[in-house]
Amino acid sequence: MGALLSFGAVVVLLLIPAIGAGALKLHSLFGVVIPYLAVIVFLVGLINRVIGWGKVPVPFKIPTTCGQQKSLPWIKHSRLESPATGGEVFLRMVLEVLFFRSLFRNLRTEKAPGDRVVYGSSKWLWVAGLAFHYSFLIVFLRHLRFFKQPTPKIIGIIESFDGFLQIGSPHLLVTGLVLFGAVFYLFLRRIFVPQVRYISLPADYFPLFLIMAIAGTGMLMRYFLRVDIIKVKELTMGLATFHPKVPEGISVIFYIHLFLVSTLFAYFPFSKMVHLGGVFLSPTRNLANNTRMVHHPNPWNYPVKVHTYEEYEEEFRDKMIAAGIPVEKQPEPREEEQPTEESEGKE
């Protein structure tokens, strides 16, 4: 259901530029206005999102500790899984952000004969996740050639690695295929793993279809429909230098590709894809496990009502004295009541 809905949405997104740029020839709208708007929405939206999170305080230092704490000097401390200093936290975050450390731990839980449960290694999600994110990154970097004149050397190097198979002309770039394949795997997983299908929302399928469509139209353009690359670069350089112009004769497939990418950019800050920014702020990962060493202040710590020792002794004084437990105040000859429940707190 969610999958069909999202698929339909992406088909509509394909048709909009096909009609708008293809039939109606609204090239400036699809070549300039929409891409600019999308990038603005992306930047403003993402920054807003991150600032929004950043403004919310972190009242407690609650890292998830996945290794031995730093304690006695002769006990081996797990620096990466239970970091005690800022530097160690940085390294933990590097592992998390660049290598998906936590996902690497993934296990598969299964029932086995004899009413047992067993836990097997399960790395495919990690592999597909890495393949997807890194191929997307490289594809993204490769596209910078359209926004810089002359093309930076580093991009040429990336491309030559990417095309190492040297198949076809232009050379087949592996990352495009890997990107498509990885996203397709993530899609199949959502469809065929019952638990994952059960938790999936339209918002989970939509980005997958959108990215498949982006990778698909990109490869179509490069290998089959062959757009006029010189003119495309003329257009993109115009965008990059804020002197937009729209050369005639760029085929509609390019506008479709560009519109889908624009959609992705504009949708990004409002979607689950904001985990790109969020992962850096996750308090269970980016805080040091040194809470007993360094005081962590809570900006909104407020006074609370407590039960003081005096109130406690007041209630139990006789029993304490009878048991020989020391008290602050000896009972006076005449009993008087002093109910003094008062608020006490500390900023």
């Binding site: 999170w53 972190v58 609650i62 996902l103 999600l125 938790i199 689950k272 985990h275 969020g278 996750s282």
Partner: peptide, 19 residues
Amino acid sequence: KYRTFKLFMDICVRCGACA
């Protein structure tokens, strides 16, 4: 008041690794 609460409402991708 709690960054964890706000952030964890926003960034889950429902990958199912926790399931």
